[in-house]
């Protein structure tokens, strides 16, 4: 189970956190990354972000990189396993996107 690629879609929350952690990043950095990249569409609640970071760490998709400023800031970075999840998820999104464009003919 631990080494298997997730077959069900990732939540948008999990995907965005994983992307924010391609470079070592901490809670506040992730929040800013997400708000900036989605132009304010996605704003993480602190409870949600905290829970998601803990769950991703438990699954070993991210790992603790450094603890700075007297244990206040915990920096995490994505693992190889995490990167595989992101790749699988992007492929899934592309598939759904293709189907969508084909049916709605929005691309024409």
């Amino acid at each position: 189970m631990k080494d298997k690629i997730q077959e069900t879609p990732l939540t948008e929350t999990a995907l965005l956190i994983l992307l924010a952690m391609y470079k070592p990043n901490h809670g506040y950095g992730v929040m800013q990354f997400v708000e900036e990249k989605t132009k304010g569409r996605v704003v993480f609640g602190p409870g949600t972000l905290y829970g998601a970071i803990n769950n991703l760490e438990k699954k070993k998709w991210i790992t603790l990189h450094a603890v700075i400023e007297g244990e206040r800031k915990k920096e995490y970075v994505i693992t190889d396993l995490g990167k595989e999840q992101v790749k699988a998820e992007l492929e899934r999104i592309q598939e759904v996107y293709k189907i969508g464009m084909e049916i709605t003919r929005l691309g024409e």
Binding site: E12, F44, G51
Partner: peptide, 16 residues
């Protein structure tokens, strides 16, 4: 200017 939600997705809201 935006609402302050501690939990920003439905599943977390249910869990809370």
């Amino acid at each position: 200017g935006k609402p302050f939600n501690i939990y920003s997705n439905v599943e977390d809201k249910i869990q809370a």
